[in-house]
Nucleic acid binder design. Structure first.
Lengths: 167, 167
DNA sequence: CCGGAATGGATGAGTGCTCAACCAGTGTTG
DNA sequence: CAACACTGGTTGAGCACTCATCCATTCCGG
């Protein structure tokens, strides 16, 4: 017998209102989800970082900027887009500024606001990194899945997003 | 027209051997996966941390230890189980030791090895945290999904694990 | 049994993230 | 238009993770 926490709690017969423990099937699904996500995210970040010197967090920022008119965006909008806190983004943009890939610019319509602007060097760095990243995603994700599984993945993701989503 | 990197690369007609860009359907699946995972992992970690003072990383360590005979495990085995580097685990165990939840013990069969041992205080902390965590997982994950979706999630996770898996 | 390679793990520097505090500019209310 | 709350963003301290390096022990070939 192990000292598994949920098991001993169940043995003790946690009365009504007690935690709704996971059954064996749920445990298995949860573990598979947790491990595969962690391993995949880790692998993708590692390959991107080692292959290009850009972490996935920075990559997301550069991508978001590259997709806008004028390659610029308000700091807080950028933070939302990157699922980042404002503080985190502010720190990250500072570091990207040191690399010369982004610069800050005060916002015309709102004196409080700042615009993060992607520089040409930043865009070039992104262009160099993108093929590396997309190849990783393909190899470790899409190449492993059938079209039905890809659809299931999208369905799952979108279902969860409706719950967790941007508010 | 935006300055989207993959689009401009496709426009330029990257010849044979160029990156295998994602099509619209794949993009959508990828984004949904990426965002939902990030948001979910974030939410679970946050609720656990705020509700119990234990981060998900620490929680995983305590769980792994609690599930073994004698509530102890070799450092490197524990690292593998937690998908952690040895260095990371070593640092983490040091911090858990400061809290009095784990202690180190030299391994009898191999003088180089160390055993991480879960203390009674550590086990108690885990017992207190487990219901909080399982409730989060249920609310934000299983309560949102149909049984078919749960099965799809397990299938996806296990498929990816076979590729990424522990070697 | 001796010497070197391999293994298990610890350590420290550098970087990134979180949280709380803070500042400047804007909106709102009388 | 003065006072105050609110918003957008930055900053610094503290914690966590990575990477390279290091030390101790064990394994292995002669």
């Amino acid at each position: 017998m192990t000292s598994d926490v949920s098991q001993s709690a169940r043995d003790a017969g946690a009365g009504g209102g007690g935690p709704r423990w996971l059954d064996a099937e749920e445990q298995r699904a949860w573990r598979a989800w947790l491990y595969s996500n962690q391993l995949l995210a880790d692998r993708l970040d590692r390959e991107l970082t080692h292959g290009t010197g850009i972490s996935h967090a920075y990559y997301e920022i550069l991508v978001a900027l590259s997709e806008t008119e004028g390659r610029m965006m308000r700091m807080s909008e950028l933070a939302d887009r990157c699922l980042s806190s404002r503080s985190r983004l502010s720190h990250a943009v500072s570091r990207l500024e040191e690399r010369g890939w982004v610069r800050r610019q005060v916002c015309a319509e709102d004196g409080r606001g700042q615009l993060a602007v992607l520089t040409d060097e930043g865009f070039a760095a992104l262009e160099a990194a993108a093929p590396v990243h997309v190849e990783s995603v393909r190899r470790h994700l899409f190449d492993q899945l059938t079209p039905r599984q890809v659809e299931a993945m999208r369905d799952l993701g979108e279902t969860l997003l409706r719950h967790l989503g941007p508010r």
